[in-house]
Design a protein around this nucleic acid. Sequence first.
RNA 1: GGGCGAUUGGCUCAGUUGGUUAGAGCAUCUGCCUUACAAGCAGAGGGUCAUAGGUUCGAGUCCUAUAUCGCCCACCA
Length: 838
Amino acid sequence: MLEKKYDHLMVEEGVYDYWLSHHYFECGDLSKKPYAIVIPPPNVTGKLHLGHAWDTALQDIIIRFKRMQGYDCLWLPGTDHAAIATEAKVVNRLKEKGLNKYAMGREAFLEECFKWTEEHKDIIHEQWAKLGLSVDLTKERFTLDKGMEKAVRYVFVTLYNKGLIYQGEKIINWDPVAKTALSNEEVIYKDVKGAFYHLKYFIEGTNDYLEVATTRPETLFGDTAVAVNPNDERYKDLIGKKVILPVVGKLIPIIGDEHADPSFGTGVVKITPAHDPNDYEVGIRHNLERIIVINEDGTMNENALKYKGMDRFLCRKNLIKDLKEEGILIKIEEITHSVGHSERTDAMVEPYLSRQWFVNMKDLSRRVVENQKNKDTKVNFIPPRFEKIMNNWMSDCHDWCISRQLWWGHQIPAWYRDDEVYVGMDAPEGEGWHQDKDVLDTWFSSALWPFATMGWPDNLDLYNRYFPTNTLVTGYDIIFFWVCRMTFESLEFTGKRPFEKCLIHGLIRDKEGRKMSKSLGNGVDPMDMISKYGADALRYYLTTSTAPGMDLRFDEEKLKSTWNFINKLWNASRFVLMNIENLKEINLTKINKADKWILTKLNQTIKDVTKYMEKMEFNNVNTIIYAFIWNDFCDNYIEMAKFSIEEEGTKSTLLYTLTCILKMLHPFMPYVTNVIYDYLPLKDENIMISSYPEYDKKQIYMEDEKEVEEIIDFVKSFRTTVKENNIVGNYQVKINSQEELIINLLKLSNKITDKNLDMTEFKVSTKNYEAIIYYEKELTEEDIRLKEKQINELTLSIKKREALLNNDNFTSKAPKDLVLKEKQKLNDEKEELAKLTS
RNA sequence: GGGCGAUUGGCUCAGUUGGUUAGAGCAUCUGCCUUACAAGCAGAGGGUCAUAGGUUCGAGUCCUAUAUCGCCCACCA
């Protein structure tokens, strides 16, 4: 028998190991239809946060549901090597030990990274187990494992041979802390306080100067021109002349270019082609020299003359001081502007001229846009609005910079010898070749995740069976990073979409609606929540609290009330188990009207829940199942069942209904449902491999349902009347029915009279039931007012409904059954009014 | 500048292809230790659905503006 109180710690103990040891999570039953989900691989950088808990709980719900529906389910787990993020963490850890990666060398450093990875994989495994995730661990992959290496090289080489990957010198986003290039998506723009420094660039041979405003004076060493708009009346005559570059003293041309906006700043722009993407373009148009002035680590190089070796920000400070002394500085205008920061290191990103590898996005992205127009092959987003986000981005995206100056990652399969470049799966034959030292962007390998994890391109057994996958679950924040890239790689290499559906969820925020972040210190550890309330409560709360795609404000109070819901389920189960101990079989042939009522409700619930499970609208599942369990089953049915608890039909109904409830809740709360299910006298091997309840129209009893609904209504009105009129102790009731449910629920057996008594009367009525409560009481003004209010409300409602039904427009245009329903309601209301005023 | 989302009782959120008394949880008030559960039970109060127009027999829902908040993308010399 169940313990008296729900104890999540005790309930969740040992269950996961049981599932594992029985291989329930493993796929491979070829007699069933396949269903596959690949996990978004978490970075091996740290612990899982609440967002992961949400994301993975959603997937587990889908996979457990499908498994119970009889699919052969593969939920493929894995982790991401997270090139830059992990490398940064390992570098920091080494730093604490007084070590640095350059001193220890590439090989030893990678060993450290693998060590780090193994430690964090262990943590992640432990957390997956705590969350109860039914991932098939025998299929686990890592973005840097041997198979992925093969897939990555194959993709790189193929795209290179098609001309879709190329090496080029361009302005890229440079992270001076991690000392690597970044893609545009890895740059976060933040508003920071800065300044416009207005400088004098003297015109050659005159005492006149152009006033140049810049936010980055330290790059002036790289200036190779000054641009004005060719249509700018103020300056157009100066085009072709030269100015003297401050400090450096050399002459640079004044050029005319549309890039200079006459209405912005002074209308004069200094052009630094090696350190600004727009200036780079201007440089190409005017054939300007590109002079790099900053080193990889953000210090100034020899072109900065006496500032050489200074950090870029220190150089700015000193330079400005010097320019002020020389009278070059006109003014400093404080402004707020947005500046790119590295997503991982938070360093200010340096636009930097550098030779990198790129993916040409033009055809790849166009293919995605085209594919989305075909409803049979497109990725279907839930909710659909996110499809537009993908389309927008794919319609207008720049080439993808994929090389990273890191060590941790897939090393680029390109080899160099003198001026030769060789790109291939393996090192070329012959002497003197050396491999590219750089590695690929993490997302380059994650983009192949749905098919490369299934053995592609070599071993296609899993791939043939489970690809394309059915559903991908992820947050809207990584649609660009990941969903888009998986889609174009998949279309390019498999000819198919990577997944049929893509369920998008939002971000977790704190109670005030702020993003959870380390700097705010408002993060919540899912493991703490699990020890306080259990994984079942956490999973249910996270997955049912918002509509798909919406953010979630984390509120511990709500988590607590989810715990209460599970406690309610626990106690209802206790009641059922206490009363059905000797039940030999479930027999639903001889059942009473209360049994029929709950079975009808149950089947309607099964139908609706299944519908919303299929649509992945889990908040709607919650609304339905919560009301069914708490209101219908607990508050009403169990109370009615107490009067017929000795009947086989009632016992059977109790067990049958509870079994269905447990099964419907199982995908959400696997632990508690597993434990309760094991106590049932009649059951299958295990709930997670049992079959999902199915709607059974033979168990729909409309007449009984209507009758019991009315009984419940009547009982409720009766109680309200008693309560509102403060009827306590001795009262007597004259009622037009012998209905046992009413007598029992209202405990009327010794209060029934068939006479008209000379006492104050309180009438309670529904369509078929009518009662007069006799009670010795002076009617107060309050009582009279109450009754009048009731009558007024009813009269008003009748008037409104009559007007509606007299409107020909309504009766002719509205659906017939609606009109009928309205007529019925009107009749009911009239009858009720008659009873009340009689 | 382009796009997206939100605005519904004190708080957090639902609200299906428009269907006529707008729901839930928490909080509040009243009364109950009723043998599954006081982490509970039985009741109650509380919303002109951001604003203004429009379409319709009928609008929280569709259309057009406006306001406030939030997010994404682009630009920012």
